[in-house]
Design a binder for these strands. Sequence first.
RNA 1: GGCCCUAUAGCUCAAUGGUAGAGCAGCGGACUUUUAAUCCGUUGGUUGUAGGUUCGAGUCCUACUAGGGUCACCA
Length: 508
Amino acid sequence: MTWQPNKLEAERLEKLQRLRERGIDPFPGAVRRSHTIAQALAAFSAQEAHGEAAQPIEVAVCGRVRAMRSSGKLSFADLEDGTGKVQLFIRQDRVGEATYELFKRDLDLFDFLQAEGTMMRTRSGEISVEVRSLRLLAKALSPLPVLKEQEVDGKTVTYGGFTDVEERYRQRYADLAVNADVREVFRKRAKTISAVRRFLDNEGFLEVETPILQKIYGGAAARPFITHHNQLKQDLYLRISFELYLKRLLVGMYDAVYEIGRDFRNEGVSFKHNPEFTMLEFYKAYIDYNGAMDLTERLVAYVAEQVHGTTQITYDGNAIELAPPWRRLTLREAIRAACGIDYMAHPTAEALYAELCARNIPTRPNLPWGKYIEQLMGDFVEPTLIQPTFILDYPRDISPFAKGVPDDPLHVQRFEFYIAGMEFGNAFTELNDPLDQEQRFLEMARLFREGDDDEAPLDEDYLRAMRYGMPPNGGVGIGMDRLVMLMTDRHTIREVLLYPHLRERDKE
RNA sequence: GGCCCUAUAGCUCAAUGGUAGAGCAGCGGACUUUUAAUCCGUUGGUUGUAGGUUCGAGUCCUACUAGGGUCACCA
C-alpha cells in the first residue's frame, strides 16, 4: 500500500521540490517561538488596555496556516496553534520580494510556519502580526478539508468542512486538525477524568492499578477477549471489570480504593458500547449503598462544576440539574409507576414471564426472574429518567456481589443511576460474607447453565481473600465514556473516543 | 445477526432512466487593509466493488464492502 499522490498532492510535491532547489529545508529542525498565539494576542490586548505608549511587541509565533487572502503586494494569512488563531499581515515591502514570492507560490494551506514580527491592529481592527520574516516549519503534502467561518450576529457560521463520520473516525488526526469543536470534546474528556481523580483523592481514596490480563475474568457478565501468554503457555483474559481485584484490596486494609482504566467486553457495538471502554470503580469500607449514593451524586456534581463551572447542563436539548440530592426510588416503585406491573405480584420467573406475555410485551422464556424485571426497567423506565435518579434494590438473582436487603429474600442493596435516559453506573452494598458469596457463585453457574449461556468461571482466590475477613463496604462502577458524553452533549460513545473501534476496511 | 438508510471531484453537495455539475480547495492572472476577500480564466470523475435489466444506468435489480440508524444481544 504505497502512497499514490493525487493531483493536489502532486502539486504540493512539486512545490516541495522547488523549495529544496532553492536551498529551503521544508522540514527544518530548529524552531524559534517566543509566544503562543494566545500569549501574543493577550500581550497586545493588555498593552492596549493600559493605553501604554506604542512599545512594539516583538513575537515569533508558530502554527498551521488556516486561510490565505492575497491582494497584490499585501497578503493575509490565519495562523493557528494549539492555543488560538492570529492573522498574519504580510507586506511585500516588509518581508522582501523573495519571501513574498515564496509565500504566494510555494506555501499552501495547512503548512506549518514560523512568523516573526510585531503585533499590530489592522485598519479593520483585527489584531495581527506584521510579519518581518517567515519560515516554513513543515510542509503539508496532503490537503485537509477547508473549513471557512464567518461571524454572523455574533455566532460563528461554518462553511464547508469535514463531516463524513467514517472518515472522521478513521482519520481522527484530520478531524481534530479541522474541527476545533472536536478538539474541545477531548479537552473536556481530560478535564472530566482529572476531576474524578481530584474528587476521589480529596475524599481519601487511593488510586491503584490492577491486572488487565487476568487468569479468571469476573465482576460482570460479559464475554471476554481471550489472549495467550506464549512463555507461560497460559490463556489469559482481558478484564471485563476490576471489581474483584479492587475488593481484595479492602481485605488488605486499604479503606478506600479506586481505579480508572480500560475494560474489554466482547459484545455488540452501539451508540453507548465500544469493545474497550473506560471504567471507574471505587470501593470504600464502612459505608453501604446509601453512602455510595452520597459519594456518587457529589462526584458527578463536582465533575460538572469543574468542567462547566455549573451543575446545570444541557444534554440532547434537556436541561439537567446534577446538584445533589438526586431522586431516589426503588426499582419496584419505578416499574409500577411506569407500566403498572408490580413484579412482586409475580414473584417467580414463570409468573412474571406469563404476565409479560399477557400484556404483549415481547420477551423470551426461561430467563431468571430478575432478567424480566430488568427488561421492564429498560423498556419502560430507563428512557424516562432524564433528571439524575437512583434506582434502588435490585433482584438478588441477577446481582451476585450485592448484600441482601434485610428481611427480603428477593432483593439486594444495589442501585443503578440514570441521567438523560441512560445508565451511568451500578453499585452495591458489597457482599462480604464468603459463604454467601460462594452460594451466589454456584447459583449464577446454575442459571447460566439453564440459560444455555457461557459459564462464569468461579474465582476461588477471591473467596479465599474474603475468608480472611472483608470490611463492610460500598462500591460503585461508573462508565467514564458516558460521563464524558454527558459533559460534552455528544450522543454516541464514538464521539468521545479518540479512536473508536471500526471494522477493518478492504486492504488497498 | 434482522430490517431501514447512505456511498458522485481533495472537501461539502447537485444531477425525471437520456452528454456527470456547482461552491470551496487547486492551477494561471489582476489587486497594498483582507477576514466565506473580490474579479477574470482554468484543471479535476472507471459515480464504493462485482454482476444484471435496458437502445441507453449515478439513477432500476441482485450480491458484496464500509458507514449510519434501529431491533436483537449486552447484569
